[in-house]
Amino acid sequence: MSTFVDRLGIDRLRQWLPLTTLVILVILVGALQPVFLQPATLLQLASDTAVLFILATGVTFVIMLGGIDLSIQSMASLASVVVALTVARFGYGAFALAIGLGLLAGLLSGIAHVRLKIPSFIATLAMGGVLYSSALVISGERSIMLADAERSYQSWITGTVFGAPGVIIIGLVVLIVAHVLQAHTRFGRYSAAIGAGEPAAYASGVKVGRQKIFAFVLSGGFAALAGVVLAGRLASGSPTLAAELLLPSIAAVVVGGTAITGGVGSIWRTLVGALIISVVRIGMTFLGVNIFAQNIVFGVVLIVAVAITIDRSKIPIVK
């Protein structure tokens, strides 16, 4: 049974690789730039990671099922525009509106995917187009700065609670809620089962379609929340506000060790993945890498991470 042993070894390696990578990266960057290890810098790192983490968390639910959501960056941007346009009139209601829209968009993506049987990457690519277009239209194709009076509503994002930045608190709440959903509820278990073996889950009486749609709803909702937080931090809303965040989000999920074939993964891993992405980004900034060229690194990281985490025994034909 040597294959059995091999498998265990590889599984263990796969499991601990992301965290090890994170630790090594932190030490490496800290050695290059000692200022990186100061509490203030680390706190800043955590704050900067929050939006990425929230986006990545949402898409983790979809990836766990073996699907993908390519509309999250458009949803987040749309949410930022909605907040910027309506916060003056609705106050805190604007946030609820934006997140409600996210849930609705996720529901529509999910229905298009499940009921019309459109592959998720194409359904969400299309939905992303619809959302982007909506954001362009309602914003008049420009970015909208928040007035000072409107910024007061953002204090739960920009302010601090007991010395901790609000955005970190939000990130922690997301972490707890998402972790409980993923690890301790029936939905989380069914997702893992569907991702790991959809026919068996179906034959065991799992309502596969319903679980999938719910995952897309979560993805849309978290994407909208990420947009809301981003709007608060940048004090503006724009149809392209989150455009650059799709790749890092998916990379965060995959780098964390969640397999894109589904079934294996957790919110904790996504947190580790998001932190890795942030540390890499900061490290590159320290090294003076052009901010646009950083996409090269993320693209490479994404492909390498997928290549490492993918379980080839599960996919006889790769398309």
Partner: peptide
């Protein structure tokens, strides 16, 4: 395929 989720 249908009996067990092998990867659980």
């Amino acid at each position: 395929v249908e009996g067990l989720v092998l990867f659980l």
